Computed example of a mutant assay.
Amino acid sequence: MKAVKIRAYGAPEGLAVVDLPAPSPAEGEVLIDVEAVGVAGADVVIRRGDLAAYGFEPGFVPGSEVAGTVTAVGKDVDASWTGRRVWAFTGVGGGYVEQACVPLDQVLPLPEGLEPADAVTLGSSGAVAHFALEHARFTPGEAVLVRGAAGSIGVVAVQLAARRGASAVAVTTSSAERGERLRRLGATHVLDRSGDGGPDAPEGYDVVLDVVGGDGLPGVFDRLRPNGRLVAVGAVGGPPPADFGMTLMARFQRSLSFATFSAATVPAADLRAVREDQFAAAARGELVTVRHDVLPLDRAVVAHRRMDAGEVFGRIVLTP
């Protein structure tokens, strides 16, 4: 089968299409004929080499979520799964492939009306947005800022915050056109990347969800109201400055909070329940999935170039 590996960490050109042996499902696994692969910000961070300290080596296959049809099952898996359309979490990597073997407890059936490309646009990012708001202890009536709202996590976070009764949903983005698209998803205020948004923008926020990280993260603390909470859910802009905690300490009397959030800390049953609910909502048209583009698997380099350039609104999907 065809797969995409990271031949060399750094630029997108380090990705290479290779031939791998066709997999067979082990006990407790299903074999999925992959029809859609989600390209996530985490894939880009790994490919750049920013997480080299975690042991990623050349030959790694990126990608954490796929969708398609089950074509075979391993021992102790009900044969009725064969032929079912599913979404699956492949783990930290292993998703840029034509076929994937995945443990059954990481597989969800797709509801009628939800296409594989929509499932990988929503599956991981939707859960992160949901639980990040919970991690921030968001309550109705609070003002929310989503920094880096044009990405797949951001576009869901905007919708969820609006649906849950935020008094304001502000977003940072790079263009007026993107701002208008985010307004249609529920944003009430559009700011530039520095956080400025004109005289009608809220003076502060109770909750900030930050997808970007990078050098600009310390300045976001000044956007928080007293007792405000900033939750970092990504670092597509790179890590923050090593001393960014001093910025937080300098505002000690405002009782601000900073936290990171990873879906890896959420119980599997809770993740499953939220994903099932979001898939059903998307199938009914109540939750919007936003695809920037759909590209063949062998154009993964192009997808990563666009991610690096900050061109992507929503999610790029690869199709084997």
Rank of each mutant, 00 (worst) to 15 (best):
K2P: 13
K2F: 07
V4P: 00
V4D: 03
Y9F: 15
Y9V: 09
P12H: 10
A16L: 09
V17M: 10
V17K: 07
D19M: 07
L20M: 15
P21Q: 10
A22C: 03
S24M: 09
P25L: 00
A26W: 01
E27A: 12
E29R: 03
V30F: 11
I32F: 08
D33H: 15
D33W: 01
V34W: 02
G38E: 05
G41N: 10
D43P: 09
R47C: 09
L51N: 07
A52P: 15
G55P: 06
G55R: 00
F56S: 05
E57W: 00
P58I: 05
G59N: 06
F60K: 05
F60R: 05
V61M: 11
V66L: 08
G68P: 12
T69F: 01
V70G: 04
V70W: 03
A72M: 06
V73K: 02
D76E: 13
V77I: 01
D78T: 08
T82H: 02
T82N: 05
G83C: 03
W87V: 07
W87K: 00
A88N: 06
G94F: 06
V107I: 06
V107P: 04
L110W: 09
E112Y: 06
D118V: 04
A119Y: 11
A119Q: 05
V120R: 02
T121M: 09
A129N: 08
H130E: 02
F131V: 01
E134R: 14
A136D: 09
R137S: 14
R137V: 13
G141L: 04
A143S: 12
G148Q: 07
G151L: 04
S152A: 15
S152H: 12
G154A: 06
V158D: 04
Q159D: 02
Q159W: 06
R164Y: 02
G165K: 03
G165C: 03
S167Y: 10
A168I: 10
A168Y: 12
A170C: 04
T172S: 13
S174F: 04
A176L: 13
E177S: 14
G179E: 04
R184W: 01
R184S: 12
V190P: 09
V190R: 01
L191T: 08
L191Q: 00
L191F: 06
D192I: 15
D192L: 14
G197Q: 01
P199C: 02
P199G: 01
P199T: 01
A201P: 10
E203M: 11
Y205W: 04
D210V: 08
V212H: 09
V212P: 12
G214I: 11
L217H: 11
L217N: 11
L224W: 00
N227T: 13
L230R: 00
L230T: 05
A232T: 10
A235H: 13
A235K: 12
G238T: 07
G238R: 11
G238Y: 06
P239G: 08
D243M: 02
A250N: 10
R251T: 07
F252M: 14
Q253M: 14
F258D: 08
F258W: 08
A259H: 04
T260P: 00
T260L: 07
S262F: 03
A263P: 00
A264P: 00
T265S: 12
A269V: 13
R272P: 00
A273S: 08
E276A: 15
Q278W: 14
A282R: 06
R284T: 02
V288C: 03
V290G: 07
V294D: 09
L297C: 05
V301L: 08
A309R: 15
G310A: 08
V312W: 01
I316M: 12
I316E: 00
L318C: 07
